[in-house]
Design a protein around this nucleic acid. Structure first.
Lengths: 226, 226
DNA sequence: TTTTATATTAACAAATTGTGAAGTCAAATC
DNA sequence: GATTTGACTTCACAATTTGTTAATATAAAA
């Protein structure tokens, strides 16, 4: 069987639903992992880094909402697709679900085929802007897959945060990122770190690259520019 | 209300639906264009290059499916978000719609608020977060994202307040801003600064730009004019 | 001319960022 | 299990930039 190389985690406490959805997604070529409550979903999400997570809202241990919120607050899951699957069909929970950061909200009962279609549509849209895009700016290359930075044919080793910081800035050369934006993107929404932390990391990147490619915009933020 | 700078085209032959959706999207900060049949939708799509298009399926002239297919075949609309809004609720048309290249498929009747939520979610996912508007006036360019001012191909570095001041004035060339308005917009409603403070900043902008583009209207305020 | 509002300049205060050193913690190595 | 290593953070202080004021000069209106 040809696999799409996309991992999907399904969390639902109803075993039969879990099974039928799993069956249909596997048939479509996805790798599927299942969980039967909120805590298990969180655990498996962390261990398996799925590309998409289907969450039932009414689950034991933790509700889908809660799982979603916890995941979204972590940088590692900022780009993970999340779909709510729920028997609730009132307007307010629908809206709340989407605002929590879900990418789709599907009401039960739903045909497995329709669900698969929606999953396909989400991947289609997201894959247009591939996340692991290699950035090349003059003699600087940044490869997020290999986690590798090359300056003038020489490898530069950056730590994780340093790399993420550089990648963020370089992903939109010229654009100024507010200190707040940087915090949210690199550190995560809820993490609290001191003001000087960003500076120190910026400094390390500047130091290691040996290039004057990060410009300070005082009172605003930082931007990449060569 | 601050606009998100995102254009949405809605195509539906039912005038009342058109109106209520338009109202809700505008309230949310989107720029909205409407069309009442398939041909008009195509025409307006080409002329306005919307970021997202909401298509009713059952429309005169051309159906939503057809419009979608035509648009998707053109490179210019590869990345445009498309949402089907339809009374059809059978599984096969749902699936077919998504496979045609739609990004979402919403069944009528739908609460306008839910629709707005789904639209927001789509924009959030494609990371099309609104960008500030770049102002171009003759040989002067002001880019709020890059925090950059270019005069005759030369970069000019402005401090934060200076930039905000210039951006405010230049956003409405010719319009006179009262000193009070300037204070509110640039410094904030509650900040108290002396009268001369504005003058000094105006002077710095004039100096740095090397252009006579800010005119004093004595006893009233300042205006941008080239 | 007199009055009033704005321009200019320099000095000062405030806010922001840069830097080196040191501490914390967890993972890797011995 | 102890030790080492390295990533990450914080701190204190230096360096820098920005914002504000005050004093004086200039120009426009009355």
């Amino acid at each position: 069987m040809l696999t799409k190389g996309k991992k999907i985690l399904i969390a639902d406490d109803e075993a039969d639903i879990l099974e039928i959805i799993q069956y249909n997604l596997v048939k479509e070529g996805y790798d599927v992992i299942t969980a039967k409550d909120g805590d298990e979903a969180l655990l498996k999400a962390k261990n398996n880094k799925p590309d998409l997570i289907i969450l039932d809202i009414m689950m034991p241990k933790k509700t889908g909402d809660e799982v979603c919120e916890i995941l979204r607050s972590q940088p590692a899951f900022k780009n993970t697709l999340i779909v709510f699957l729920t028997a609730l069909n009132d307007e307010s929970s629908h809206i709340k679900g989407l605002e929590t950061g879900a990418d789709d909200y599907v009401s039960k009962p739903v045909s497995p085929k329709v669900l698969v279609s929606r999953v396909n549509a989400l991947f289609r849209r997201v894959n247009m802007e591939p996340e692991g895009k290699v950035l090349k700016i003059e003699n600087l290359t940044i490869d997020p897959d290999k986690f590798e930075v090359v300056v003038e044919d020489k490898d530069v080793t950056l730590a994780k945060k340093e790399f993420e910081l550089l990648y963020l800035l370089a992903s939109r050369p010229g654009r100024v990122f507010l200190r707040n934006e940087i915090l949210n993107q690199v550190w995560g929404n809820d993490v609290i770190v001191g003001d000087r932390t960003i500076d120190v990391h910026i400094r390390k990147v500047r130091q290691k690259l040996g290039l004057d490619c990060i410009t300070t915009v005082k009172g605003v933020g930082y931007k990449f520019s060569l």
